[in-house]
């Protein structure tokens, strides 16, 4: 073969494609990913999926078990549980995504600067992370929600502010490790500018662990929100999230156990899906295993 155009030559398998192939072979991760897509779509399209309104009450019916009309039953006010779970899922998923986004932005910026700068800057920045890490955060979250009232925006910010620390540590570790690799040194000796090195050589190699950790942060954020809502400090009625639905379910679980079980299943199922997907991504993207 002696083609003159580069495009005529056979394309190699990039690490990204390699990872994608490995991920597709991981059955649990694929099931997790699909579940996630289905759950997200159902929640987003809740008004079209469910014939009932979110606050539409059927006081005559009251709390009733699963039936053909109400697949997952109704709560004490006769509201359709499936509808409430779907709408609650919107809040839970949104908190998960937005708070993780906050954590991602702060954590990646902080960690990347500390790792790239190194030396004293790094020491000071990471010492700060260490100190904040040692604070009893759950207690602060509870305090903040009590003090400033149950504010959804505040909830995002507070949870995001808790979760960015680990992200910062991971990114900093990545950048530091990469900085010592010879291909970064080679890039310096070629005379590339700092920004080009970051853009072309550092970021593409550091992004894998960030993706993985992001996927694993979402479930822990959702847990945190559910925890706060369960304590009655998060989402306020009539709005609900899976956490507050579970809290409501607990109160009446002796008589109407489905009110606890179904919201619980919704939360656990989503957490499962996210964790399986995250574990699968971690296995698939691990650069070390693809080296040999």
């Amino acid at each position: 073969m002696n083609a003159t155009r580069i495009e005529d030559y056979e394309q190699g398998t990039s690490l990204w494609r390699d990872a994608w192939i490995r991920l597709r072979k991981n059955r649990l991760a694929v099931i997790g990913g699909m579940t996630l897509i289905v759950v997200t779509l159902l929640c987003l399209l809740a008004p079209f999926v469910s014939p009932y309104g979110y606050e539409q009450q059927d006081l005559v019916l009251g709390a009733a078990g699963p039936s053909a009309r109400h697949w997952l039953g109704t709560d004490v006010f006769g509201r359709d549980l499936l509808t409430r779970i779907l709408y609650g899922g919107r809040i839970s998923l949104m908190v998960g995504l937005i708070a993780t986004g906050v954590a991602l932005i702060i954590g990646v910026t902080w960690g990347a600067i500390a790792g790239y700068a190194g030396g004293r800057v790094d020491a000071v920045m990471m010492r700060f992370v260490d100190i904040v890490y040692a604070l009893p955060f759950m207690i602060f979250v509870v305090l903040l929600m009590v003090v400033f009232g149950r504010n959804l925006l505040l909830l995002f910010l507070v949870i995001g502010a808790v979760e960015w620390l680990t992200m910062a540590r991971i990114v900093r570790g990545q950048v530091q490790g990469l900085k010592q690799l010879e291909f970064i040194e080679a890039a310096v000796s070629l005379g590339l500018s700092g920004w080009t090195i970051i853009r072309r050589h550092l970021i593409p190699n550091a992004i894998g662990p960030v993706i993985v950790y992001t996927t694993l942060t979402i479930p822990s954020v959702m847990l945190l929100e559910a925890f706060i809502s369960f304590l009655g400090l998060g989402i306020q009625p009539p709005q609900s999230s899976w956490g507050s639905l579970i809290a409501e379910g607990v109160e009446t679980m002796e008589e109407f156990p489905w009110l606890l079980i179904f919201p619980g299943m919704a939360l656990s199922l989503t957490l499962f899906a996210l964790n399986f997907l995250g574990d699968g991504l971690r296995d698939a993207l691990d650069v070390r295993t693809s080296r040999d």
């Binding site: 479930p219 847990l223 559910a226 925890f227 369960f230 956490g243 579970i246 809290a247 607990v250 606890l260 619980g264 939360l267 656990s268 957490l271 499962f272 964790n275």
Partner: peptide, 8 residues
């Protein structure tokens, strides 16, 4: 255990 929070 990880996906089943304490309050559930």
């Amino acid at each position: 255990g990880i996906c089943m929070p304490t309050f559930l």
